[in-house]
């Protein structure tokens, strides 16, 4: 019994169907508790006022935006090395979820930035990196859509994910360098905005982070199942077409 037995689509589907109700319930529960707790039961921050409540959306979404890409990277590697179809399909299934998380992080960040920094957007390293991550997601999804043969698409997108990861990290450091070069001396208070948070804010934040993680897991499991079914349907039709 090894973990690789779940590379078999049938076994994967059986397991994922069995565990999904639990994960979905836990995800909805954690997200609801985290957000409601944060929204209704936490005090305002002395400096940020009520806008501190946005943190319960912003930080978990940003966390999952990066983790989704990381998961796609691992899945791509597994596909390239061990050729498990489930792995490639899981990477495909995760990308749109990652896009949505990135989008939420960007939007909530902009809404928070407007009253706090007086602007929707600054070309701060952190913000810029996220925008670049968003572009990488778009390219990855577009490549999946464009290539017709599913195995070739899995191959190409996997390599793009690997190369993209290297360049994403490179961009992160380039952007840091670039912004310091541009705004020497000016400091944008990005990482301080309640990151080193007090316990009152921290516990609901952790619940919300766990909830977003579970929600990501549930969505990816479900979407992977969808991709497997679509693939099998087209394979059945193709084979019937060939034999008749």
């Amino acid at each position: 019994m090894s973990i690789w037995q779940y590379a078999n689509p049938v076994k994967f589907l059986a397991l994922s169907t069995r565990v999904q109700p639990v994960i979905w319930t836990a995800a909805v529960l954690c997200v609801a508790v985290g957000l409601l707790w944060g929204f209704f039961a936490t005090p305002d921050d002395a400096r940020q006022g009520a806008t501190v409540k946005i943190i319960y959306l912003h930080v978990p979404a940003a966390l999952m935006a990066i983790n989704a890409w990381f998961m796609m990277l691992v899945a791509s590697l597994i596909w390239l090395i061990r050729r498990h179809h489930v792995s490639a399909l899981a990477a495909k299934a995760a990308a749109p979820v990652g896009v949505v998380m990135t989008l939420i992080a960007l939007i909530t960040g902009a809404i928070w930035g407007q009253p706090m920094w007086g602007t929707w957007w600054v070309w701060d390293p952190r913000l810029t990196s996220f925008l670049i991550l968003f572009l990488f997601y778009l390219g990855y999804i577009a490549l999946w859509e464009a290539v017709e043969d599913p195995d070739t698409a899995a191959d190409l997108t996997s390599v793009l994910c690997l190369v993209g990861s290297v360049f994403a990290v490179l961009s992160r450091y380039a952007v840091k360098f670039w912004n310091q070069g541009l705004h020497q001396g000016t400091s944008v208070p990005v990482a301080t905005g309640g990151r080193s948070v007090a316990d009152v804010f921290f516990y609901p934040l952790v619940v919300s982070m766990v909830g977003f993680g579970l929600l990501f897991l549930a969505l990816v499991l479900y979407r992977t199942g969808t991709e497997i079914r679509l693939r099998r349907a087209s394979a059945l039709l193709a084979r019937a077409g060939r034999e008749s």
Partner: peptide, 8 residues
């Protein structure tokens, strides 16, 4: 695909 790779 290429433009994000050109960023650095």
């Amino acid at each position: 695909l290429v433009l994000p790779l050109y960023v650095p």
